[in-house]
């Protein structure tokens, strides 16, 4: 149980990078971008095949992320220059990427079990530091009977993901970033303020998919393989993370919204892990659970709000009738 929760947090933090990408397209640019399902695999596949062919894992990861960036840019071009509806541009790119990913990988699954991935390299450095023994010592003292094999992934990934979060926060506050946000808010206005909305959308969707592909590249190395179908439903998981995160942690400022997205991604993984522990649920039920989770996250805040509002009104009515009775 503890181990599987630990695993959930571990992969949740990696998937959070994908969720940040989805936040950029879906929330900031108001662009429902389905490229994600394809670009996640592009990142995973290109990185895996590169590693298998002897490219250093760090470089392979960067290559994967860049491929995702380019895929996103193409979606942006289809939408802005080709004047194709946003949803459709993403769908077209998604199915195009399926074939491209297969070409890149050469086969449906690329295994890295015999290769050294970025995480194994980190682990090699890490094991000399003795930090694992320290954390596991605490866990054992707290009464855990089984402890995680390594803390490196979760700690390094928290640092990397938070780093990306802070970069995103900063970027969205720069002059370019403000224009990007306005593009998702009021295109006519920002164009009249001399911003080239087409290039902002192209670059914005590019960055979004770059993050998605980076996440894919890391997930592949975490799991030890890339599969051409591993991106199916990824956009929904990204949306679930964004929506669940916002429902739990709020979205008042950008800094809060981005940390909420990360939190949402982790919570999502935990919910899935817990659901899998339930006897009658199978892994095939995950998509249904995801859908239900998103529905709850969308409806619950509104219902809570409506409840509060109703209580407030009832109280006011009660006060008023009390006053009338007194008089």
């Amino acid at each position: 149980m503890l181990i599987s929760l630990f695993g959930a947090v571990e992969s949740g933090v990696i998937y959070a990078i994908m969720a940040l990408g989805v936040y950029l397209s879906f929330r900031v640019l108001d662009f429902p971008d389905l490229t994600v399902d394809g670009s996640f695999v592009t990142g995973a596949g290109l990185t895996a095949i590169s590693i298998v062919n002897g490219v250093p894992p760090v470089l392979a990861t960067v290559l994967g992320a860049m491929a995702g960036f380019i895929a996103g840019c193409i979606t942006g071009v289809l939408h802005t220059k080709g004047k194709i509806n946003a949803l459709l541009s993403g769908i077209l790119m998604m199915i195009a990427l399926y074939s491209i990913n297969l070409r890149i990988m050469g086969q449906p699954t690329v295994s890295m079990l015999n290769e050294s991935t970025i995480f194994q390299q980190l682990e090699a450095i890490w094991s000399r530091l003795g930090i694992d023994a320290f954390f596991n010592g605490i866990l054992t003292a707290l009464g855990a009977d089984r402890v995680p094999t390594t803390w490196v992934i979760v700690i390094v990934m928290i640092i990397v993901t938070l780093g990306i979060k802070f970069l995103t926060d900063y970027y969205l506050k720069t002059e370019v970033g403000l224009a990007l946000r306005a593009t998702g808010d009021n295109q006519k206005m920002i164009r009249s303020l001399s911003a080239n909305t087409d290039s902002l959308i192209i670059v914005g969707i590019g960055i979004s998919n770059g993050l998605v592909a980076l996440s894919g590249a890391l997930i592949a190395q975490h799991g030890g393989f890339a599969n051409v179908n591993m991106g199916i439903g990824m956009i929904v998981i990204g949306l679930a993370s964004v929506i669940v995160g916002e429902a739990i942690f709020g979205k008042r400022t950008i800094a809060i919204a981005t940390i909420a997205v990360i939190g949402g991604a982790v919570v999502y993984r935990i919910v899935v892990t817990l659901a899998l522990q339930v006897d009658f649920l199978e892994s095939g039920d995950m998509k249904l659970i995801t859908a239900i989770l998103v529905i709850i996250a969308l409806i619950a805040p509104k219902m809570i709000q409506a409840r509060k509002e109703q209580k407030r009104r009832l109280r006011k009515r009660a006060e008023l009738s009390a006053q009338v009775e007194e008089a």
Binding site: T174, E175, V176, A179, L193, S194, A195
Partner: peptide
């Protein structure tokens, strides 16, 4: 933020803080 965007109207937008 709106004012900052308008302020950049006749300048090149950079990767520097808007406000």
């Amino acid at each position: 933020e709106n004012l900052a965007m308008a302020f950049s109207r006749n300048k090149k937008r950079r990767l520097k803080r808007g406000v």
